[in-house]
C-alpha cells in the first residue's frame, strides 16, 4: 500500500477500516516479535500493539505525520519498541530519555497511556456518557477523529453540514452543563 494514499485513506470517513486492515496484518507478527525479542508477556505485547496502532492513527489524523518515509510496519514497530522501553522503565522505575522518541529523524508524538490517564478517563467517561448519543458520537467524530462536518452528516445521516454544526453547538452546551455540575466553578458562565 502506498504510504501517501494510505494516510489519505486513514483520514477519510472509512479510515477505521484501513486501520483494522493494518491491525490484522501486523498484529501476530508484532506479538511474536515483542515476546521473543523483548520478553514481553502476551498481554503486554497485545496492549502495546493496540496503543501503538492508536498513536499511529492519531499522529496521522492530527497532522503530526504528513509523510511516512519508512514502511508502515517499521513505523508502528518503532512506536511499539519505544512503548516497550517505556514499559520496562516503568517496571524498573527509571526515568525515560526523550531522545529515545526519535525515529528516522522524525518525531513520533506520544500521548499519555499511563495510570494518571486511566484514573482521569473514568471521570471523563462518566461526564461524556451523560450527554448520550447522538451527541457523544458527533463530538467524538468531530473532535477526536477530526471528521469534516460534511462527512459527519453522511455518517450520521443528517441533512447537511449546517445541521451538524447546529447540533454540535447544542451538544457542547449540554456537555458544559454536565461539566459545571461535576467540576463546579471552573465552568461558570453560559455557552
Amino acid at each position: 500500500m502506498e504510504n501517501h494514499s494510505l494516510i489519505e485513506k486513514i483520514k477519510n470517513k472509512d479510515g477505521e477500516a484501513e486501520l483494522k486492515e493494518i491491525y490484522d496484518k501486523y498484529r501476530n507478527e508484532f506479538l511474536i516479535w515483542a515476546m521473543r525479542k523483548h520478553s514481553c508477556t502476551k498481554e503486554e505485547a497485545k496492549d502495546v500493539f493496540q496503543q501503538s496502532v492508536i498513536i499511529f492513527y492519531e499522529n496521522i489524523i492530527y497532522g503530526k505525520v504528513k509523510e511516512i518515509t519508512s514502511q508502515v510496519k517499521t513505523y508502528i514497530f518503532s512506536i511499539g519498541k519505544n512503548k516497550i522501553l517505556e514499559l520496562s522503565r516503568q517496571k524498573s522505575k527509571q526515568q525515560f530519555n526523550s531522545e529515545d522518541y526519535m525515529f528516522a529523524g522524525q518525531d513520533i508524538f506520544y500521548n499519555d497511556f499511563d495510570d494518571v490517564y486511566e484514573e482521569k478517563i473514568q471521570k471523563i467517561e462518566q461526564c461524556i456518557s451523560k450527554i448520550g448519543d447522538p451527541c457523544k458520537k458527533l463530538l467524538v467524530e468531530f473532535y477526536y477523529h477530526k471528521r469534516p462536518m460534511i462527512d459527519i452528516a453522511e455518517i450520521m445521516d443528517y441533512k447537511n453540514s449546517d445541521t451538524v454544526k447546529n447540533l454540535k453547538y447544542k451538544c457542547l452546551k449540554r456537555l458544559k452543563k454536565i461539566f459545571q455540575s461535576e467540576f463546579g466553578i471552573l465552568f461558570k458562565g453560559a455557552l
Binding site: I54, I128, V140
Partner: peptide, 26 residues
C-alpha cells in the same frame, strides 16, 4: 478555556472508544 477542556475530554473519550473497538477486532 472551557472549550479546550471539553475538547480534551472528548478526545480522551474518543480514544477510549477506539481502544475498545480495537479490542473487539482483536
Amino acid at each position: 478555556n472551557q472549550l479546550k477542556l471539553m475538547v480534551d475530554c472528548v478526545r480522551i473519550s474518543g480514544r477510549k472508544r477506539l481502544l475498545d473497538e480495537i479490542k473487539q477486532w482483536d
